[in-house]
Every structure is written in structure tokens, then in C-alpha cells.
Deep mutational scan, measured.
Amino acid sequence: DDWEIHFNNITIRLHGVSEEQIEELKELIKNGAHEEELRKWAEEVNR
């Protein structure tokens, strides 16, 4: 699925990401992940 997530003036566009991966991302954000951590997560997902 395609997703677009907005938070802290950042837009993250995701393509072909599962519901499970979105839940992981929500947890990262909820736990106060920094932009660098989110980038690493996105790189892993996009492999």
C-alpha cells in the first residue's frame, strides 16, 4: 500500500509498505524517534 504520514512538519511517503510496518513506524514516532532513526527505518523498509 501507499502511505503518506505527516508529523513535525515532515512528510514521509511510503510505497508498498505493510500495515505491520506502519505500526512499527507509529511506535518509533510515539517513542520520540529522531529524524535519523526514521530515515534508517525507511531505508530498511525500502530494501
Rank of each mutant, 00 (worst) to 15 (best):
I29F: 06
L14N: 01
D1T: 15
L14K: 02
E36Y: 02
E37D: 14
Q21K: 13
N8F: 02
K30F: 06
N46V: 12
I22T: 04
E19H: 12
A33K: 03
L25S: 00
H34C: 12
L38G: 00
E4V: 12
E43G: 01
W41E: 02
I22V: 08
E4T: 12
E24Q: 12
V17E: 01
H6M: 10
D2T: 13
V17F: 12
E19C: 14
L14M: 07
E20L: 11
E36T: 06
W41Y: 04
E23S: 10
E4D: 10
F7A: 03
E37R: 05
L28A: 01
T11R: 04
I5A: 05
N46C: 14
R39Q: 13
V17N: 01
R13T: 04
E24K: 09
T11V: 11
L25E: 00
N9P: 02
I29V: 07
I12N: 04
E23Q: 13
N9E: 10
N8L: 10
L25K: 00
V17P: 15
I5G: 03
E35Q: 04
E43K: 01
E36C: 08
G16H: 15
K26S: 07
N9C: 14
H6Y: 04
Q21A: 11
F7D: 01
W41L: 10
R13I: 13
H15Q: 08
K30P: 00
E23R: 14
A42S: 03
L38N: 00
I5C: 12
I22A: 07
N31R: 12
R39I: 15
E24G: 07
G32L: 03
N8W: 01
G32W: 02
K26A: 09
K30E: 08
H6F: 04
K26L: 15
W41D: 02
E36N: 13
H34Y: 08
W3N: 03
G32C: 04
L28S: 01
E37S: 08
E44A: 12
N46H: 10
L25M: 05
E36G: 07
D1M: 15
E24N: 06
Q21S: 08
V17L: 12
W41G: 02
H34W: 08
K30V: 06
N8G: 15
E43C: 06
A33I: 12
H15K: 10
E23F: 10
G16Y: 14
E4W: 07
V45E: 03
R39L: 15
N31E: 05
K30S: 09
E43F: 01
R13H: 15
R39K: 13
I5N: 02
D2V: 14
K40W: 05
I12F: 00
Q21F: 08
E43L: 01
A33E: 03
E44N: 14
E20W: 10
T11I: 13
E27S: 14
R39W: 11
H6V: 12
H34R: 14
W41F: 09
V45Q: 10
A42E: 12
V17K: 03
H15F: 08
G16M: 05
N9R: 05
I22Y: 08
K40C: 05
E43A: 02
V17R: 02
R39Y: 10
I5L: 10
I5D: 02
E35D: 07
N9A: 07
S18R: 07
K26I: 14
L14S: 03
E37W: 05
E35P: 11
V17W: 13
E43R: 00
G32I: 01
K40T: 02
S18A: 06
V17A: 14
L28P: 00
E44S: 09
H34P: 12
F7Y: 09
E36F: 02
E24C: 04
K30N: 06
R47N: 14
N46K: 11
H15N: 08
K40G: 04
E36I: 03
E4A: 03
E27A: 13
E36V: 06
E19F: 14
I5P: 02
A33H: 04
G16S: 10
L28M: 13
E24A: 09
G16I: 12
E44I: 08
